[in-house]
């Protein structure tokens, strides 16, 4: 059984919701995926992130009113909730996937989100679909 040393995160974000800052990703390996708009959050992309090894997936979208495309972030949230139920169904734990409203200007709260995610991972453990075959 192989467990990667550092937790792997995949971070989907729209243009206004995220900007990387120094030491933001300490203690984890992060793959970021930029989306033109939060409404492009698709269930299959979230799932494939888990297939390619993510222990947790974060979706960062701009605040509803700030969204450049009306309803984009609402749609994103619905997609995320849908995938969370699927993850629960197959015993992968929906808590691995979360969506947050963030702004690229507020790196503090993004830092907090990542920290909280890493703490959560200590409880729920690594991606259970990868323990055997990676």
């Amino acid at each position: 059984m192989k467990i990667h040393n550092k937790p792997k995160l995949t971070l989907f974000h729209c243009l206004n919701s995220f900007k990387e800052t120094a030491s933001m990703f300490d203690g984890c390996e992060v793959k970021t995926v930029k989306m033109a708009c939060s409404s492009m959050t698709k269930d299959v992309h979230l799932l494939r992130a888990f297939e390619s090894g993510a222990d947790a997936v974060l979706v960062l979208v701009c605040r509803e009113k700030a969204c450049r495309y009306a309803e984009g972030s609402i749609r994103a949230e619905k997609r995320v909730n849908y995938v969370k139920t699927i993850l629960d169904d197959i015993g992968m734990d929906g808590k691995r996937l979360n969506i947050f409203n963030t702004s690229s200007k507020d790196s503090g709260s993004i830092n907090d989100i990542i920290k909280k995610t890493l703490l959560e991972l200590e409880i729920i453990g690594p991606n259970p679909a990868l323990n055997h075959f990676n």
Partner: peptide, 21 residues
């Protein structure tokens, strides 16, 4: 096709988790 893609991905995850190919 969207649902096919999602289902395929979910099944792969599920079977990997069960250590089944």
């Amino acid at each position: 096709e969207d649902e096919v893609a999602v289902l395929a991905s979910v099944l792969r995850l599920k079977f990997k988790k069960m250590a089944r190919s």
